[in-house]
């Protein structure tokens, strides 16, 4: 059974369509990265999953229960860290951690102490004196100290320094080892790359792609750099080659994964001396999905310049 099961989820704010037929499935024990630029609909999706917002169309189920109708039942099994952590200014961090753990059903004192130490948080300070990162730590400690099956984390690392990011990654890995399920939205690609089993990319309220990192990589292009003994000719005639540049004995190009064999046979004729092939990074995947926005932007700025 899927822990999270979202089908054709659509959400309107007035006339603005924030989500359009979003589909999302997370299996037990899986870590799903939910990627998208600002304003793509990540937080809206998460808030619907939590029963804080009502969907306009479609269904959202967690643990097989309806996200809106059975919100309270569902919440017994999950912990949530909001993207923008707001806390009560006159309560201390320690009090807030205790409160959230208690509201979720129980407090594990030992785990709490351990986490506070690892995240290097002073729990006696009033929340109003915490920085964004420290408020995030409070919410993360409260989440990971709770005994739940699903973690929903909305841009959990956006305020953390690299050291704390590493601690956070540890916590997620540990949760995964324990068979917990994690939904994590982010636009910090390094986190997603390290932690997530699968990735869903959302843009403008629609899911653009879903798959494992290697699946997504297959769908995109490899970069190849090659140096040969003889001058290379005829590469431009192979279909599927992009961004080709040949300078004497060196060539650089991008190629769809399914054409690699053909290209290698062709290159072999020219006495290969040196060759590197780089799989696409998540950045490149990301850029491919939002790249046309960048192109638009460049064109716009060019227009404004001319």
């Amino acid at each position: 059974m899927n822990v999270v099961d979202v089908k054709n989820l659509t959400k309107y704010y007035g006339k603005f369509r924030a989500l359009n037929e979003v589909n999302l499935k997370i299996k037990q024990g899986e870590v799903l990265g939910f990627l998208g630029p600002n304003g793509a609909g990540k937080t809206t999706t998460i808030r619907i999953l939590l029963g804080l917002l009502r969907s306009s169309e479609g269904q959202a189920k967690l643990f097989g229960k309806d996200a809106w109708e059975d919100a309270v039942e569902i919440h017994r099994q999950l912990a949530y860290v909001p993207g923008d952590v707001h806390l009560w200014p006159n309560l201390t961090g320690g009090e807030v951690i205790d409160l959230f753990c208690k509201l979720r059903g129980g407090l594990d004192d030992i785990r709490r102490e351990k986490l506070i130490k690892r995240f290097d948080l002073d729990p006696t300070k009033k929340c109003k004196t915490y920085s964004k990162g420290n408020r995030q730590k409070v919410a993360l400690i409260a989440a990971f100290a709770s005994d739940v099956d699903l973690f929903i984390l909305d841009e959990p690392t956006s305020g953390l320094d690299p050291l704390m990011s590493a601690v956070f990654q540890d916590c997620v890995s540990k949760a995964k080892e324990d068979g917990k399920t994690v939904l994590m939205s982010s636009h910090i690609l390094a986190d997603v790359e390290k932690l997530c089993d699968r990735i869903s990319i959302i843009r403008k309220g629609e899911i653009a792609e879903t798959g494992t990192l290697s699946e997504l990589r297959h769908m995109t292009q490899m970069s190849i750099e090659v140096e040969t003994g003889k001058a290379i000719v005829g590469l431009e005639q192979i279909k599927g080659i992009d961004n080709l540049s040949v300078e004497g004995l060196k060539a650089r190009f991008e190629i769809n994964s399914d054409k690699i064999d053909e290209v290698m046979r062709h290159l072999a004729n020219f006495n290969i001396r040196f060759l590197t092939s780089t799989p696409p990074t998540l950045e490149e995947l990301f850029m491919r999905h939002y790249g046309d926005d960048l192109v638009d932007l460049n064109q716009a700025s060019e227009r404004s310049v001319s």
Binding site: W88, G94, E95, V96, L99, K102, K126, K128
Partner: peptide, 23 residues
Amino acid sequence: AAKPGPGDAPKSLLSPLGLAWRL
């Protein structure tokens, strides 16, 4: 200046009613 407070919550805080009263 904000003074530091207790690192743990008193039992009375740990319920919706306790929280509302505290606030």
